[in-house]
Design a protein around this nucleic acid. Structure first.
Lengths: 254, 254
DNA sequence: ACCGGCTGTTGATAAATATCAATCATTATG
DNA sequence: CATAATGATTGATATTTATCAACAGCCGGT
C-alpha cells in the first residue's frame, strides 16, 4: 500500500516536471513569483509574503490558444485557475446548446463551487483569446481561507458579488425578451469586459447567442434591428453604442 | 471557566425574558435557547456553546402568516433569517413577473449575498405556509465566520451547493422547454421540499409557474398533459408521481 | 488563383409560449 | 343563504423565438 502511494507521488512529480518543461518556453510568462505578480494586488491583497510563497510553490503556469479547453464540466480537478492574460469563457454545456455564465479576464480567478463540494467542475472553461493561466492547488487556497480571516472575508465578498451577478443574469435570461437580453450582453461587454465604448469583439456571434440564451440567428437579427434604429454600429467585430440611453431603456423594459 | 459559562447562560436567559414578552404569544415557539434548538445540529454544528450563546443573544423570533412578506428586495437589512417552522419562498421581483429562486423549509437559513456587499437584499422572501423565523444579527454571523474556520468552511460548502443548484436552475430555465421545466419543479418539490411522493402542494399554481419561469396557464396545461399521459395524478393540491422514469426522461430530454 | 471549410447573414416557415377572455370551483364575507 | 372575491381551468388567438435552408464572405492551404 505504502509502496503504491510512493509510486503515485513519483509519477505525479515527474508529470509535473514535464509540464514545467513546456511552460518555460512561454513568452507571455509574466512573473516568476507571485510576490512580483500584479495579480496579487487584486486577488491576494490580504495575503502576506509567506502566504504568497505557499501559492507560488504549488502553481503551474499554462498557455492556451484561442478555442482550447481549459477544463471541462464533470471532470475532477483540485485546482483553481487564475487568468493572467487573454480572455476566457466559462459555460455550462446543456442539451445541445451552451450557456455562457461569464467571461473571465485578467486578473480574475475561476473558482468553481465544486472545490468545496466534490472537487468536480460544474461548468467548462475555454480560451476565447489566447490565454495564460496559473493553476493553483485548491488545498492551498482552502488552507489560506481557514487561516486568514481577511482573505476569507474578501473571498466571501467576491462569491457574493458573483452570486448577485448570477441572479441578475437569471432574471435577464428568463424574464426579458430578446432585445432586452442582447442589450444586457452589450452592456456587459462594453462596461465589464472590454471597458470602452467603441470596442472590438473577440467573441463570435455564437458566443453572443450563448451569452444571451438564444439562437445565433436571433442574436444577429436583434443586432441588425439595433443597427437600423441607430442604437449602435456593428461592422464585423467593431461595435459602438451610439444611443446608450435608448439601449438602457430596452434593457429595462425587457 | 465553568463559572463564566454559567454566568453567560444566566445573562442570556434574562435578556431572553424581555424579548419573550412579545414572543410568548407565539404557539409555534420552539426553543428558548439556541443550545436547545434542533437548528443547531444542522446549521451550527461547528459552533461551541459560547458561540451559540452569541447568536442566541442577538436573536429575535418572529411569526409570519402565509402570504406575509418576510423581507423585500432592495431593503437594507443586517440580519440573516433562519426558518424554524413552515415554508417560505425567496423570489426575485422582475418585470411584472416573479421568479422563485428557492423554497426554504426548516431548518435552513436565508443568507442573502448582500450581507457581504452592501447589506441590502437582492431578493424578496415571503411565507408560503405560516412560518416561524429567527432573525440573527449578521455581524455576529460574520464574526463567527472569521473566528471559526470549521464554521466558515461549512458555510462555504453550503454557499457552493446553493451555487450549484442555481446553475442547474439556470440551465433548466433557459434551455429546457416547458415540460422539462415542470418536471424539474415536480422533482424539486417531491424530493427536496415535501420529501415524499404522494404529496400535498402548499404552493399555488402561480408559484408553480414562478418556479418554472412560465405563465400560470402554461404550467396548468403541462400538468394536464402529464395527467393525461398517466405520468402523475393531480387533484387540487394532492399530487402523486406515477411514472418516475418517464418524468425523469422528460426532465432530461428538455 | 482555386477550393473547401468556416463564420456570418438573410428569409421563410414552424414550433413554442404568452396573452386574453370566458368559465368553473372554492372559499370568504356580509 | 346569497354573493362577492379569489384561484383554477380551458379555449382561441397573437406573439415570440427557433429551426431550416440557402447564400455570402473570408481565410488558409494548395
Amino acid at each position: 500500500m505504502l509502496l503504491f502511494i510512493i509510486l503515485l507521488l513519483i509519477l505525479s512529480d515527474t508529470k509535473k516536471q514535464s509540464l514545467r518543461g513546456s511552460i518555460m518556453i512561454n513568452k507571455n510568462h509574466q512573473a516568476s513569483n507571485c510576490n512580483d505578480c500584479n495579480c496579487k494586488t487584486q486577488i491576494f491583497k490580504n495575503l502576506g509574503s509567506i502566504e504568497l510563497d505557499l501559492i507560488n510553490n504549488s502553481r503551474f503556469q499554462v498557455d492556451y490558444k484561442a478555442g482550447e479547453i481549459i477544463f471541462k464540466q464533470g471532470t475532477p480537478s483540485p485546482y483553481f485557475v487564475c487568468i493572467t492574460s487573454g480572455l476566457a469563457k466559462i459555460y455550462i454545456e446543456g442539451y445541445g446548446k451552451n450557456l455562457i455564465l461569464a467571461l473571465v479576464k485578467p486578473v480574475d480567478y475561476i473558482f468553481g463551487p465544486g472545490i468545496y463540494v466534490d472537487n468536480r467542475h460544474y461548468y467548462s472553461a475555454s480560451a476565447v483569446e489566447d490565454c495564460t493561466a496559473c493553476l493553483v492547488d485548491a488545498s492551498v487556497f482552502k488552507k489560506l481561507i481557514r487561516e486568514n480571516p481577511d482573505f476569507a472575508e474578501d473571498f466571501l465578498k467576491r462569491v457574493s458579488l458573483q452570486s448577485i451577478f448570477n441572479f441578475e443574469q437569471i432574471v435577464s435570461l428568463t424574464q426579458k425578451q430578446m432585445p432586452g437580453r442582447i442589450a444586457d450582453v452589450i452592456f456587459y461587454l462594453s462596461e465589464k469586459i472590454y471597458c470602452k465604448n467603441p470596442f472590438e469583439l473577440s467573441i463570435s456571434r455564437q458566443d453572443l447567442a450563448d451569452l444571451s440564451g438564444m439562437s445565433k440567428e436571433s442574436a444577429i437579427r436583434i443586432l441588425k434591428e439595433f443597427k437600423e434604429e441607430g442604437i449602435l454600429t456593428v461592422a464585423g467585430n467593431k461595435m459602438e453604442i451610439l444611443n446608450i440611453k435608448q439601449l438602457r431603456q430596452i434593457s429595462e423594459t425587457g
